[in-house]
């Protein structure tokens, strides 16, 4: 039972972090909405969020990498290739973003000469990232829907959770078959 609660908690953390990353990605791809300064800082923070995302899914990365040419489902294989591409594209976006930075890096005392090719690569990579994120979300769509449903069902099963202590509520939830 404790294991189930742990898995539930992990799913909640993953879902929350992934939703935050997705929201940040959408905001970061619209510099006109945020302004250039927020766009740049958001991009840097995005790098940290991706790293956390990778650390949370480390076991999966290692397992699929080990069995990539062996016994592994085609979905996992496609997913792995897609995620590798996504990592490469995200790294390119962040690296080129730093090279053309006008607010974040100058604030830290770095002033780089403007190079138009970095801007071009930055844009090309961000366009590619939108497509790759689309496929990434699509391949995880069932997990997203199922996790969200499970999460919402749990929250609707405990209407008295505001007045009850947290431990009692969580135990009651665990007792539900």
């Amino acid at each position: 039972m404790a294991r189930g609660a742990g898995a539930q908690q992990r799913t909640t953390i993953n879902l929350a972090l992934d939703s935050a990353i997705f929201g940040a990605f959408l905001a970061a791809t619209a510099p006109r909405l945020t302004g250039i300064a927020i766009h740049e800082w958001l991009g840097i923070a995005f790098g940290v969020a991706i790293m956390t995302h990778l650390l949370l899914h480390w076991q999966w990365i290692i397992e699929v990498a080990r069995r990539f040419f062996g016994k592994v489902t085609w979905t996992a294989r496609v997913n792995y290739v897609l995620n590798t591409l996504l990592f490469i594209v995200m790294t390119i976006i962040i690296a080129t973003g730093l090279m053309i930075s006008e607010a974040a890096l100058p604030l830290l005392g770095f002033q780089l000469p403007h190079d138009h090719i970095w801007s071009q690569i930055h844009r090309l990579a961000s366009d590619a990232a939108v497509l790759l994120i689309g496929f990434h979300v699509a391949l995880h769509w069932r997990w997203i829907v199922n996790s969200t449903r499970r999460l919402l069902r749990i929250s609707t099963r405990r209407p008295a959770s505001i007045t009850q202590p947290v431990t009692v509520t969580s135990r009651a939830v665990r007792e539900v078959p």
């Binding site: 791809t29 006109r32 699509a138």
Partner: peptide, 28 residues
């Protein structure tokens, strides 16, 4: 101008969201 934040940028968000939604719908 990209220096200033503006609500007009919501169009970009909507466009990207529409692309992602279309891909998800197609793949699913």
């Amino acid at each position: 101008d990209e220096h200033q934040a503006s609500l007009a940028g919501l169009v970009e968000v909507g466009k990207n969201l529409a692309i992602i939604a279309a891909i998800v719908a197609l793949v699913v």
